[in-house]
């Protein structure tokens, strides 16, 4: 997409706000609609947009595919690790009261934050990885045929 000048300038302007919005959705999810799943998808959209407009090499320079593959698994590990941590503190699996025994609701806040972060990491990783997988293959239809 070398010739789409307006598209490239607008994309450059948009990517920062998109990532910021994803973080807002993530960390404001306790008070308004949103959470790890939505934030993960929006975060992935920022990278996918960059990849569509500037090409796969450019986006993989920023967000290499080995890192994406690690993040996919890391998110599930964060989620399960939170559960295991509460297990070691003598509570039930995923019982976040363990993190603050005197104020169980504070512990719940910490637990929910950690778990939602795990969801964010996995969803971002999976969506970007799927996009990379599709974009890496050689297209059967050339640009002119559209």
């Amino acid at each position: 997409m070398r010739h789409h000048l307006i598209l490239r300038v607008v994309t450059k302007l948009l990517i920062g706000p998109i990532i910021l919005f994803a973080l807002y959705v993530q960390f404001h999810g306790d008070f308004s609609p949103g959470g790890g799943f939505q934030a993960g998808v929006i975060m992935a959209v920022a990278f996918i947009l960059y990849g569509i407009v500037f090409g796969l090499e450019a986006v993989q320079h920023v967000f290499p595919s080995w890192l994406v593959h690690k993040l996919m698994a890391l998110g599930v590990l964060i989620f399960a690790g939170t559960g295991v941590a509460s297990l070691f503190l003598g509570y039930d699996f995923l019982d976040y009261g363990a993190f603050s025994p005197h104020h169980p609701s504070h512990g719940q806040h910490w637990g929910i934050l950690a778990v939602e972060f795990g969801v964010l990491v996995t969803v971002t990783g999976v969506m970007v990885a799927i996009y990379y997988a599709f974009a890496m293959r050689r297209p059967a239809i050339s640009d002119e045929e559209w």
Binding site: G29, F31, S32, L94, Q108, I112
Partner: peptide, 12 residues
């Protein structure tokens, strides 16, 4: 003690 019940049920 979190306002969004959907997040509460989802995560906790």
């Amino acid at each position: 003690d979190i306002p969004n019940v959907v997040t509460v049920v989802l995560a906790s």
